[in-house]
Write a protein that binds this DNA or RNA. Structure first.
Lengths: 229, 229
DNA sequence: TTAATAGTGTCTGTCAGACACTATGTG
DNA sequence: CACATAGTGTCTGACAGACACTATTAA
């Protein structure tokens, strides 16, 4: 009990997700240090004990530094800890995931950051593939019973666009009427006065935006879509 | 980026739960070191990087050392991290929860460990009250759609006893027929040949035990009880 | 008028909650 | 036989999935 033990390495890794062309994409950062220098991995970094108040703070700071953006939604995923996940030794990674609308990051791709479809990914350094898969599975399962995908939407959008995003996240198609019934029950959207279409060759759709003062984190957990077959 | 930062303190804390007299109880350990020496807190300790393979290993070792028992069920709860939760400075607690049948721990109460009802608890050192509440809420919500409370049962038990345990965890009453329908759907129990009652003054009940080779962790997530009103 | 999507009405099978009923032991 | 709990049959309202229908714009 009184022996001193080597301290584990503590870092924060982030699974940053977006929806692009109907598919979930994750951000990968080019590692500039050992181990795995020159390889693509989940963006991550050490906790700065002098500036970060907590782990979410650290995640936000790291994302801003590595990707130059602020995500509207962060959540702790889980912690991956053990002796063998990092060649430097016993390590702890407090993994987080974040969602960001594709429109908001069209400009952030640069030499040290790239976007790849989550489903086509095979190998990643450390246990980052397991972390990514855990995040994707969490997001998909939350999508079944919450309004999480709203964080992937731009300022205003139509219900059909929202449905496409849900379908993209889930990788399944949903019934239109049932989908609208549930979104309405959530009661987190308001109509935007000006309907929009202008030249689509068909009936224009109502635009919606998030209700002001709605905290989606608490408004979650009442959607109840059924898992796809 | 190249600056060195102070390393956060990393520990593992455990919410050990059992059901006693129809109520959820948690184990508290008497702290023998600063900070908060002499106060009751969740059992916890440092990671031993030379012997623990991962965080679950550490949790099992700590529980064995502090309470002298092995729990049939461990799961990582979430990680509590930040600057202000521990007076020693920036700290990380990888919190776990564990379930153990009351019968298995009748003998483990001693000077440095005590059992208290979770709902009557007010103050605890660090952020241990928040950790405890998170664990209880997790267990209650998992109980609604999984077979988690089976970890609180002795070797053999009747369906009525199992229902009482579910009701104790949830703090609500359940319909007998509906409860049995769902347990049957889970398909994780088998009848024990000898029915038992011997002197109860009424019809004896069938005893059940867990099916062999059933991993409850994977058999979970299909119960579907409705949240109490 | 047609094409194309927006938006709504309605049927039906499933299933959870409620509750009543039968079964089987003890005293 | 009375009593207490074990165990089951069945009704019903809510609701999700399916699908058909109407509405509204552009060309």
């Amino acid at each position: 009990m009184s022996t001193e033990y080597e301290t584990p390495i503590v870092s924060v890794d982030i699974v940053l997700l977006t929806l692009k062309e109907g598919q979930l994409y994750t951000a990968l950062a080019l590692r500039d240090k050992e181990p795995f220098a020159g390889q693509w991995a989940l963006p991550g970094g050490y906790i700065h004990t002098n500036e970060d108040q907590d782990d979410v703070d650290a995640a936000a700071r790291i994302l801003l530094a590595k990707a130059g953006l602020k995500s509207p939604y962060y959540e702790q995923l889980r912690t991956f800890a053990g002796r063998h996940r990092d060649p430097r030794g016993w390590s702890v990674s407090i993994a987080h995931y974040a969602l960001v609308p594709f429109e908001q990051l069209a400009h952030v791709e640069h030499d040290h950051l790239k976007w790849v479809p989550v489903d086509s990914l095979r190998g990643l350094p450390f246990d980052h593939l397991a972390i990514l898969q855990t995040a994707v599975s969490r997001v998909r399962s939350k999508t079944l019973y919450s309004s999480l995908p709203l964080y992937l939407m731009p300022e205003t959008f139509t219900l059909t666009e929202l449905q496409k995003v849900y379908e993209g996240v889930l990788g399944a198609t949903l019934d239109k009427h049932g989908f609208r019934r549930r979104i309405k029950e959530l009661d987190v959207l308001v109509e935007v006065p000006g309907a929009v279409s202008t030249g689509t060759g068909h009936r224009p759709a109502q635009q919606y935006r998030l209700k002001r003062k709605v905290n989606l984190a608490t408004a979650d957990s009442n959607l109840g879509l059924k898992a796809p077959a």
